[in-house]
Design a binder for these strands. Structure first.
Lengths: 129, 129
DNA sequence: ATAAAAATAATAATAATTACTATTTTTATA
DNA sequence: TATAAAAATAGTAATTATTATTATTTTTAT
């Protein structure tokens, strides 16, 4: 695999933000540095980075995937109104759950814990229901 | 909301199977009883049933959503090779995790715990990697 | 400097899902 | 039971996220 500045830029952005952007948001951001980058390049590199374990993909069921540059074991809270994802630390931690769980069905490569609800901002803005 | 036999059939199928079918698979199944049902009807009713809390949607990130007629608190194991989903009971249980976790970011309506790996069948069939 | 290998931009294609609309089904009421 | 309003459907078109294709450009080893 060769170096690519576009890939570096994608990775850098994901490492620097605490948000959990979609491919489209990443595209818009990286475009500021590389205006000619194409959305396909973003998708291809995201898949690559996920396969390498340098980035995590978060599936919320809202129709588009989100990406996370923080690969440490942590869980997520998803607001079904504003579609934002927040980091949460739970007790026991996700890796404690993983360690304690003998799934017994095959290999376990990862565990994802996702809470869903309506965030405080959306409640305050009457953006809920 | 009015009664509909198509919706009943979808729900019945989801309650009867231990699999976690996609909309397409549900469509093919319900078609045996109602050959004229359209895929749009399946999607519309699945969304409805999920909103009513009678069915759960499972997002694995494999490009299509899966549905589960078992709404009791339980977790899932997803095989990234054969794309099947299996029920798993973990310790502590998903509702114990939910109870113990003070997310503090807003309301928490649900918690989903998903393990991902390669299932035994796929390992045996060298369907892994 | 150069050539092979890999990556890209631009675009086309695919696949899952949603929207639209004329027709049919359901349901409340006479 | 007949009927009419409301809701749901089938069939189809449209949308959206994602993947595939290909000619060109970038990277890297020599």
């Amino acid at each position: 695999m060769n170096y690519s500045r576009q890939r570096e830029s994608i990775k850098e952005y994901l490492m620097s933000t605490r948000e959990h952007p979609t491919a489209e948001v990443i595209y818009q951001h990286v475009r500021e540095e590389y205006p000619k980058i194409s959305l396909g390049t973003v998708y291809r590199n995201l898949t690559l980075l996920v396969d390498l374990g340098e980035v995590k993909k978060i599936s919320t069921g809202d129709g588009t995937e989100h990406y996370d540059g923080d690969t440490s074991a942590h869980s997520h809270y998803y607001c079904r109104c504003c579609h934002r994802i927040f980091d949460v630390e739970v007790t026991p931690s996700i890796d404690q759950i993983l360690a304690a769980s003998s799934v017994g069905l095959g290999t376990v490569e990862q565990a994802a814990l996702l809470f869903t609800g309506v965030c405080k901002d959306c409640i305050n803005n009457d953006n809920n229901v």
